[in-house]
């Protein structure tokens, strides 16, 4: 019998289980502590819970941790981990250590529905949603978990297309009963599904990054089909209605494609669109993936673009490229594993 996982459940769900199994009410708090505060992997290690109650739990539930099954390490120290997901699928998380911060990039879906022209994950199509437990497991089961300073939801999948589990995972990460992380150390990256984005803005305190990649409608349409549904102009109009003067940050991701979105006209339109917003634009070098008719802009063009945008008053930086030798950001590892499995 497939047992239900305890990891990923919130206090209400744990209380309900404790109640259902006829355990004392205080056991719920003990279970939550074991799940999110301590380093154990099995119900049997919950040493302050009676043997009878542990046996009761074991009958229907498992602790619910899945360790990574494979990893690759880049010469720059970036590590990509492959995790199992339900139904024999796979997801990736990338650990990116740096001098001042150690960032973990996590996934929210197996595959993706958005079909962006430049994305390797999109080539898998959509396989399934991750549960909050599977999302947080990428952090909890990482060998370097105690060194993580920042979390970015920029791995496989579109977080706002899995809003319920995204929000639940953030509740686990930021609650006192959970990992108690500051929401200021968590960034969610999205292509801008507006209704879900509004819920996120109103119910979460985490940072937001929007994948822009072009300020022009027609051009963005061809790179990102979502533009037909939620246009970047409408995304920005919605974002401008929120107060970004505090510590919460909004940034825009901009992958630079040679001869496509790297011209002075793009700088002007970006500056016009973002006028009045306190935000940052992150320029990202594109690493070509198989069967895609796009090339990355050269370094000189990227520097010029950054300087032009900065001169127009938009805070802009070029994101350091990490883990290039292991394709850290592109979904290749899980795609290969999926192909092998099939």
């Amino acid at each position: 019998m497939l047992k239900e996982k305890l990891f990923g459940k919130n206090p209400d769900e744990i209380k309900s289980i404790v109640n259902e199994l006829g355990m004392p009410a205080f056991t719920a708090k003990q279970i939550l502590d074991w799940l999110y505060k301590k380093d154990i992997n099995t119900i049997d290690e919950m040493s302050n819970i009676s043997a009878i109650n542990r046996a009761l739990l074991n009958e229907k539930y498992e602790f619910g941790i899945d360790l990574p099954i494979k990893h690759q390490e880049s010469k720059d120290g970036t590590k990509k981990y492959l995790y199992p997901a339900a139904n024999e699928r796979f997801i990736e998380a990338a650990y990116i250590p740096d001098e001042s911060r150690n960032t973990l990039c996590i996934s929210t879906q197996v595959g993706c529905k958005m079909g962006c022209l430049f994305c390797m994950t999109g080539k898998q199509g959509f396989q399934q949603q991750l549960t909050a437990g599977e999302i947080v497991n990428q952090i909890r089961s990482l060998p370097e978990r105690h060194q993580i300073t920042n979390i970015v939801y920029m791995g496989m999948g579109e977080p706002f297309d899995n809003l319920t589990e995204l929000m639940k995972s953030q509740e686990i990460l930021t609650s006192e009963w959970g990992f108690a992380m500051s929401p200021r150390r968590i960034t969610v990256s999205s292509i801008g599904i507006i209704p879900a984005m509004i819920t996120f803005l109103e119910e979460s305190q985490c940072h937001l990054a929007i994948s822009m990649h072009s300020p022009f409608d027609e051009e963005r349409n061809k790179l990102m089909p979502i533009q037909h549904v939620y246009a970047i102009n409408d995304v920005i109009k919605t974002l401008k209605e929120y107060n970004w003067h505090g510590q919460r940050r909004i940034s825009f991701e901009y992958i630079m494609f040679k001869g496509i979105n790297d011209t002075e006209q793009h700088v002007k339109e970006l500056a016009r669109l973002l006028n009045g917003m306190i935000c940052r634009v992150n320029l990202i070098k594109y690493h070509a993936i198989p069967n895609t008719p796009l090339e990355g802009s050269d370094r000189e063009t990227m520097y010029k673009f950054r300087d032009s945008l900065t001169a127009k008053g938009i805070f802009c930086s070029i994101r350091q490229s990490r883990g290039e030798d292991i394709f850290a950001a592109c979904g290749l590892l899980s795609t290969k594993e999926l192909v092998k499995k099939n």
Binding site: G115, L117, N291
Partner: peptide, 29 residues
């Protein structure tokens, strides 16, 4: 249609010489 169909079809079209600028896609998600 679905993302699988759109992504796979787009790859085939590009492979057969259709410039990606001439491909317009709407994905049901």
């Amino acid at each position: 249609g679905s993302s699988e169909m759109v992504v796979e079809t787009r790859d085939i079209l590009v492979d057969k010489g259709v410039p990606y600028e001439n491909i317009k896609a709407e994905i049901y998600f």
